[in-house]
Amino acid sequence: MTDIIIHCAVALLFPPLLLGVIGKTKAAFAGRVGAPYLQPYFDLIKLFRKGSVFSETTTWVFRAGPLITLSAALIAVLLIPLGHHGAPLSFSGDLILFAYLFGLSRFFTTIAALDTGSSFEGMGAAREVTFSCLAEPTLFFSLLTLARISKSLSLSTILTHPTPAIWLAAGASMLLLVGALFITLLAENCRIPFDDPNTHLELTMIHEVMVLDHSGPAFGIILYGAALKLFILGAVFINIAFPVATGNALIDWGIFIAAMLVLAVAIGVVESVMARLRLVRIPQLLVGATILSAFAMLLVLR
């Protein structure tokens, strides 16, 4: 019970901090002081207090988009184990629901973008759905590989199963998996090298351009939802890449949060040292990640 409460509390409160840490890391690389770690929280509070501007072309779809996107993410966060504690909602086959919840949120993000009738947002929506077609098989290959290793179909078992011993036994395939998942993590969360969350007005944008017309509380919901998505996929990644469990519940939570912060720093470093890829290169990298994960699966299937 305590774990469930901590799970919900961490999942609800922690995600924006990741954005703060990424921002601070990038600032450090650029030689700036940067915004405070808690800046994303301040931004969210400010946005929730603001009024909204709606475009005349929009309908109820535009208003429903952010809500459903956030709701899908809130259900998805209940399905993944955090810090080696089982997820509050867990059943055999929940990994399929997990993947399809992202599909649902993508559907609504993109139709909300198309509702504005802006060609920029149309562009972003088209890219989002196209690239996700390429990222989706990667997620499935990875989860299948882990399912095969742990002989289970439930995310709680699959993601708490990896241990240092398994890393030693199936190191090659775990390494491939971690590589593929890191690429997917960056792609799905629209980070560099796939997308740049800091600029709005370039024609190569994906996620940011889809939310150009959202304002006020709706935009706050979108920002929060994006942070939550980063948190979810980050947690999946950390569970596999850093499978350390002490057995002590509180220490495990501490390790998990520390690991997530390190991941945020790592993303910040990637964003600081890399340039964004040309748009035509993105599918190649995504297909590359799919092939890496397919390799990982092949290695455990043999």
């Binding site: 559907f107 139709i111 149309g122 929506a125 759905v129 077609c133 098989p137």
Partner: peptide, 27 residues
């Protein structure tokens, strides 16, 4: 079969976002 279905599902989302979005939304 699972990755195949995932790919098909991704393309289906693309197709029907296009259908619903272009037909019913925008100006």
């Amino acid at each position: 079969v699972a990755p195949v279905l995932a790919l098909v599902g991704g393309l289906a989302v693309l197709t029907f976002v296009k259908l619903f979005g272009i037909v019913f939304l925008g100006a």
